[in-house]
Design a protein around this nucleic acid. Structure first.
Lengths: 376, 376
DNA sequence: AGGGATTAGTTAGTCCGGTGAACTAACTTA
DNA sequence: TAAGTTAGTTCACCGGACTAACTAATCCCT
């Protein structure tokens, strides 16, 4: 079962546990069950969550009053006893604004419903904007999406490049010229709705975990675009790291005799794997297949210690599918299997993302779902 | 702040949160504060935990009645107002039985107090025992320690080699001939006290985290002995992994052209780093310093992706200090710094264990503290 | 010396959320 | 039509934390 872990929400600093928290927790439990298994009766929910029918009725009643959940009538089949009334999440009761700031030339925005479906989408060319100008563009995009929304807004979720801390401050994003930019605060004060910001690879991991074909167990989503980043879901929740830099794998050196990297070092994973480098080397290669296999082997060698040490269950490659889903994927999988214990390698699933280019947008929506409803 | 995470304790399967759970949580909160910061007044505790003075008084009263906590009188300095009464954990109110099954020729046992201090210790030679015979020896050692204990026993903590699941079943420990051995259950039914079992490297990580010089933030403890294993503390709690095999880094291949390993592969980390191999290569080396540096570089290269991806704060080397704490440690640190981003490498601390050979025993005690009192 | 001011800890009463037991409701089966 | 079964609700209660208001013990200042 996916653990209920509010991501990004300001935790009670003390750690004390109020009755109110218990009630929110139980609400999340019910919502989680409804999201995961679809509509169910109150009695079903009571059985699956372990709460009493009384408590479930009370909580469901509350959520029905808020329109978050709706009654769907009786199911078709008929058994003995009073027929149940199914209740389900009203996926379009409220909408979420999701922003993806990870492309290098533009920013993407969407209105997403509670089921993770994109309702409308927009984008704005970045045209070289940096710093405040880039932040203004984000504000503008958010305003447009909110103005065009047909439902109440649950919150705004943002997947941003760079290192983002738990309070939604972008600590460092060279491409956008952001350093210590309190993006969540500025969006929140401007729009008045809850805002959650995380690194784009981390949101991708959340998206894949919640709406992708995730099987449970530890998962790593490796996002390959202009740069390379990773997001990790461990024991059911997103890893942040000591300085919020978990997943910053792009500038780990994998080959000290490799290419020069923009960061000043030599042989960073990005020089091996980032899309521009990959395409360039592919164009120059005598045998594209062999080149992809070789790249996959190197990637596998770098990831094997990570996969092995964490005993991960899934490795998801997200990026240009035509490059990743073939010789490269196969080589990564084989190399990792060859380099880890059977108990680890045999269980490992290596696959490409099932959500494609929307993974960051959808993940940004999950950020809001998790923060506001405790669902993930 | 260290997160309060019961390790090994059977979680309520449903996830529902009773008032009783809240009370246990608050008790843990208080105990945690007392363990971490030493004796404090009820009013201090109220301030630091965010609970009201009334609630704190109530909970402290309960724990004083159980002798878990004791009143220590007024502090020396005097300020305005009624002088407070300090309360502190009664470190010797109950004792813990800790077992370390990681040496290959014997098993170690100790009685440990709540402050992590070893009161008495014993050992038994293994003399080649396997399977049931080895299990019987463990039972015998536990019986002897319990019989000799002068205080009530809070529980038994065991650090075992091999893969151990969350319910205390040793899934696979070739050295002891255990495969799916329900060690926790058998010890519990024999002794009638709560039992917690975990992998020895994992308990080492717990020990170092709680009683070592841990600074907070992600930590990895690499244990180098007959084999090589790791334990990871991420976001304040121990990582288990998909098949409970997190930390099983010993048989990750780090050099495909390296030595043959007992596991059948070539160039596993163990062939590089396990104590017997290390000593053998050291004896054969022209320059021991250079050999240790070379080994450190290889280790650093294997760990850099892990440290970088997880944004760890501390890497602790546990094992023969005379081999680890010098050229090897320095080379590991330098290599990881050279191979990770500044935000990660600059913050990293690489050091040897402060608990020495007792780290597994002490960690096994932490297992019990965490499971029974919610302290870690 | 004596009355604030200040801080610690306790007592009394309240509120909140979940519970079990017992109810009503609505169906199937014989 | 009666018996059995399942869904959902009502009601009295309980545990645990909270607030408000107390007592206790000290310092400090006049």
């Amino acid at each position: 079962m996916t653990q209920v872990t509010p991501v990004g929400r300001q935790l009670r600093p003390s750690g004390k546990l109020l009755q109110e928290d218990a009630r929110r927790h139980h609400r999340s439990l019910l919502l989680q069950a409804l999201f995961r298994d679809g509509p169910a009766s109150r009695a079903d929910l009571a059985r699956s969550t372990g709460l009493t029918r009384v408590t479930v009725s009370d909580l469901v009643g509350e959520m029905v009053a808020e329109k978050l959940v709706e009654e769907l009538g009786a199911p078709v089949g008929s058994r003995v006893g009073k027929p149940p009334t199914l209740v389900g999440v009203a996926a379009d009761s409220t909408h979420i604004i999701a922003l993806d700031l990870s492309p290098d030339d533009r920013i993407l925005g969407a209105v997403v419903n509670l089921a993770g479906k994109v309702i409308t989408r927009t984008e704005r060319p970045l045209e070289g904007r940096h710093g405040q100008a880039a932040q203004d563009l984000v504000h503008e995009l958010a305003d447009e999406l909110i103005a065009g929304a047909t439902k109440p807004i649950l919150g705004i979720g943002v997947g941003s490049p760079g290192v983002v801390d738990a309070r939604g401050v972008v600590l460092d994003a060279p491409n956008l010229g952001w350093h210590g930019t309190a993006l969540a605060d500025s969006l929140r004060s401007r729009t008045g709705v809850p805002v959650f910001v995380a690194n784009d690879a981390n949101t991708a991991a959340l998206g894949e975990h919640t709406y992708g074909a995730a099987e449970g167990g530890g998962m790593m989503v490796l996002r390959i675009g202009t740069g390379v980043g990773a997001g990790l879901i461990l024991e059911g929740s997103l890893l942040h790291g000591h300085r919020a830099a978990a997943g910053e794998i792009g500038h780990v050196v994998v080959d000290p005799r490799g290419e020069q990297c923009a960061c000043g070092r030599t042989g960073c994973l990005e020089t091996l794997l980032a899309e521009p480098h990959l395409r360039r080397r592919l164009a120059a290669a005598a045998s594209p297949q062999r080149m992809l296999t070789e790249t996959g082997k190197r990637l596998g060698a770098a990831l094997a210690p990570v996969i092995g040490t964490l005993n991960l269950h899934e490795l998801v490659l997200s990026g240009p599918t035509e490059l990743l889903d073939g010789a490269l994927r196969d080589a990564v999988e084989k190399t990792i299997r060859d380099r880890t214990m059977p108990v680890i390698g045999d269980e490992l699933v290596v696959r490409t993302s099932t959500l494609g280019d929307d993974v960051v947008l959808v993940g940004a929506a999950v950020l809001v779902l998790a923060g506001e409803l405790g669902v993930s």
